[in-house]
């Protein structure tokens, strides 16, 4: 299977991370990738670069600065009004032109709606390999990117390589990698690029942007504390016990997939392989059996506490703490106990 890397790709060098800047804000997955990219670059002995595309603005400048703080040595920058809102055409053009000009060996993007839209186009235009939703990145003895991802249903993992093409591309979902500590003293080189495209050449126009209402919006992926319930809660009304404990702790609530399938909670509350990946400091799972598809979404939690009536439940195989008891009793008891412990003010909130 293995051939020599074609001559034209031998000059491809350095690790790139696409910095996802949308409406003035950098998606945190970009910094998580920067942390991983730094490790790969150090292993290969090459530079880590961030690619920042956006309009000329203070926010774009801020994104560039932070790209260095999170580990980049170089920033490739394209500033153009046509890059103000994400659209596939100008973004694909800018990124493929940059790759063809500066020739990175590895390129990482977040597996967000933006990152997946862009990565699929760029990889096809460049005719190279793209591994989706990687959960682990490494370089092997032959300096080839080894991207590991769950295979069917998450029951097995597979490691995918792009041996004979460059760049080697991979996407990673938010919260799968740890957020690195920024070093605010770092800075680096800037390389400018111009978008060889006019607004008049771009077919697709953004007529409007409707921001999601921020009130009842689930932000599970970035919550410090998550309380979730599964089918063990039996009826939808019992989810009040889950939301109350989450409220007491100032955290988010979620659930397993069958709870969503039953229509008890909306899809954005689902945790697991086909829902949110979470990485909280504390995860409390009540009445959840701990199927592999649920497990892969919660394994990044610092502390997992499971409440389940069945001592043989799979969840106890990866939880850090377990309680074999009825969740309908333990959840309210736990909420009361936290209120007592954390002081009266918490009760009011």
């Amino acid at each position: 299977m293995k051939k020599e890397l074609p001559e034209k790709f031998r000059s491809y060098k350095h690790v790139w991370v696409f910095v996802e800047l949308e409406r003035g804000k950098v998606h945190p997955v970009s910094w998580e990738l920067m942390g991983e990219g730094r490790k790969l670059a150090d292993k290969l002995g090459v530079d880590l670069a961030g690619v920042v595309l956006g309009p000329k603005s203070d926010e774009t400048r801020q994104a560039i600065k932070e790209t260095y703080h999170y580990g980049a040595d170089v920033c490739y920058i394209c500033e153009d009004p046509a890059l103000a809102d994400y659209r596939n055409e100008p973004y694909t053009r800018a990124l493929t032109d940059l790759v063809n000009t500066h020739q990175p060996e590895i390129m990482l993007l977040g597996a967000t709606t933006l990152g997946r839209d862009l990565a699929g186009s760029v990889a096809t235009t460049l005719k190279t390999g793209l591994t989706a939703d990687s959960t682990e990145l490494d370089v092997d003895d032959e300096k080839s990117l080894a991207a590991t991802r769950p295979t069917f249903g998450g029951t097995l993992l597979c490691t995918i390589h792009t041996l004979n093409f460059r760049p080697q591309m991979a996407t990673v979902r938010p919260r799968v990698m740890a957020m690195p500590e920024p070093d605010r003293s770092r800075s680096g080189r800037m390389v400018w690029h111009s978008l060889k495209m006019d607004e008049a050449d771009i077919v697709t126009k953004v007529l409007e942007y409707v921001a999601d209402a921020t009130t009842d919006d689930a932000n599970l992926a970035y919550a410090d504390i998550v309380v979730a319930g599964g089918m063990g809660l039996r009826v939808p009304e019992n989810f009040r016990l889950v939301t109350r404990l989450a409220d007491v702790l100032g955290g988010e609530y979620g659930c397993s997939r069958p709870v969503v399938q039953k229509g008890w909670l909306p899809a954005d509350r689902q945790i697991g392989q086909t829902g949110n990946t979470i990485r909280p400091r504390l995860y409390i799972a009540a009445g959840i059996s701990g199927a592999i598809q649920h497990r892969v979404g919660v394994e990044g939690a610092d502390l997992i506490v499971a409440i389940n009536t069945d001592p043989a439940a799979k969840i106890f195989e990866f939880a850090h703490m377990g309680v074999v008891a009825d969740a309908l009793t333990v959840l309210p008891a736990l909420a009361d106990a936290f209120e007592r412990r954390l002081g009266r003010r918490a009760m009011a909130s």
Binding site: E22, K25, R87, T112, V206, L207, Y209, V210, A211
Partner: peptide, 10 residues
């Protein structure tokens, strides 16, 4: 999109 909905004309 990530934080909202884009209305696109194409």
């Amino acid at each position: 999109a990530e934080g909202g909905v884009q209305v696109l004309k194409s």
